[in-house]
């Protein structure tokens, strides 16, 4: 089974856990208490999140805390954002091209039929 950011955020409970942990480090029991589902199920989600590198478990005294690993989460958004920027600029260029070559536009000088070189 794959273990990466995308696997991590594929599940709604895991997304909820990420949101929770993002705001504050919580111990494992505190996380489990906020959900209606069973403790073993929560443990399993936390294990996956750990394996995906999105959270880290730190032992502090007698408690085990879930802490966010921001770098990994940035990987999701930046990487999608990069492609969004890229394709948006291409769409802008296409829009300009279509407008510049619009046969019905007054500023266009070419004939209705596309000229072939």
């Amino acid at each position: 089974m794959r273990r990466d950011v995308f696997q991590a955020i594929a599940d709604p409970t895991r997304r909820a856990i990420i949101h929770m942990i993002a705001k504050e480090s919580l111990n494992l029991n505190a996380v489990a208490d906020r959900f209606d589902i069973s403790r073993p199920a929560i443990s399993r989600h936390i294990k996956i999140l750990t394996e995906c590198g999105l959270i880290a478990i730190k032992q502090e005294g007698r408690e085990r805390y879930c802490k966010p690993r921001l770098q990994k989460l940035n990987e999701v958004s930046n990487w999608v954002e990069q492609y969004r920027t890229f394709w948006t600029s291409k769409f802008d260029a296409l829009e300009k091209f279509l407008s510049d070559t619009d046969p019905s536009s007054k500023k266009n000088i070419s004939t209705k039929k596309n000229k072939r070189k």
């Binding site: 990420i18 966010p68 770098q71 989460l73 940035n74 990987e75």
Partner: peptide, 25 residues
């Protein structure tokens, strides 16, 4: 294809979780 994070790392978790990631999710 990476070089993610770095400068954005410092930008703050709040905006990330509130905007980009939120939208993505």
């Amino acid at each position: 294809i990476k070089d993610f994070a770095k400068e954005n790392f410092a930008k703050g978790w709040t905006s990330l979780i509130g905007t980009s990631l939120g939208k993505f999710l």
